[in-house]
């Protein structure tokens, strides 16, 4: 199935909850509203025509320019994205699902943005979502075991956020 057909199928099914698309690029993507994500993913996984039985990767991207001078020239509004690279072993087609999120929930710094977990649909997502949570600070609601996976348990902050500040010391070890 071509990306155009997949997008059309999703739009017929979910209407305005499909919020965007770019289908003529190398990795065609479809944007989904965060609250509809779980439903859309279940459809992608279980529908016979789509049968997206393989989740390659869950990634987080932080669109933010910490330098105020460069921020004016930045070609994006500050936001975060979660990407799901999907493909179907059965039909041999693939698509990328994107979710756009604010950098902070309700624009209050410190409150992590939330997105529904898909770990119950693809078990692969379990560790990938933990990694995104650990490094980017995105909370996956409904995840069975949302702990840090790479950083120590008592680590403060989410290191791959663009405005992350390095700690001065960690457990008595000088860090700068």
């Amino acid at each position: 199935m071509s990306p155009q057909e997949i997008a059309q199928l999703l739009k017929d099914q979910f209407g305005d909850r499909i919020t965007g698309e770019a289908l003529d690029v190398l990795d065609p993507w479809i944007a989904v509203a965060p609250e509809a994500l779980h439903e859309v993913m279940e459809f992608l996984r279980n529908d016979e025509r789509l049968a997206m039985d393989f989740l390659h990767c869950v990634s987080g991207v932080d669109y933010f320019e910490p330098d105020p001078k460069k921020a004016k020239r930045a070609k994006f509004e500050p936001h975060m994205e979660v990407l799901y690279h999907l493909s179907s072993m059965k039909h041999g087609h693939r698509i990328v699902i994107k979710v756009f999120l604010p950098r902070w929930k309700n624009d209050r710094p410190g409150e992590l943005p939330e997105v529904p977990s898909v770990a119950d649909i693809w078990p692969t997502a379990n560790w990938h979502e933990r990694e995104v949570y650990d490094l980017m600070g995105i909370r996956f609601v409904g995840h069975p075991d949302l702990r840090r996976i790479l950083c120590p348990e008592d680590w403060v902050g989410h290191p791959l956020r663009k405005d992350y500040e390095f700690p001065d010391e960690y457990h008595g070890i000088r860090a700068r």
Binding site: L150, P159, Y164, F166, I173, R174, A175, R176
Partner: peptide, 11 residues
Amino acid sequence: GYHVVKGVDLV
């Protein structure tokens, strides 16, 4: 590197 000790002689 946010994760690397800046020399093991700190440890």
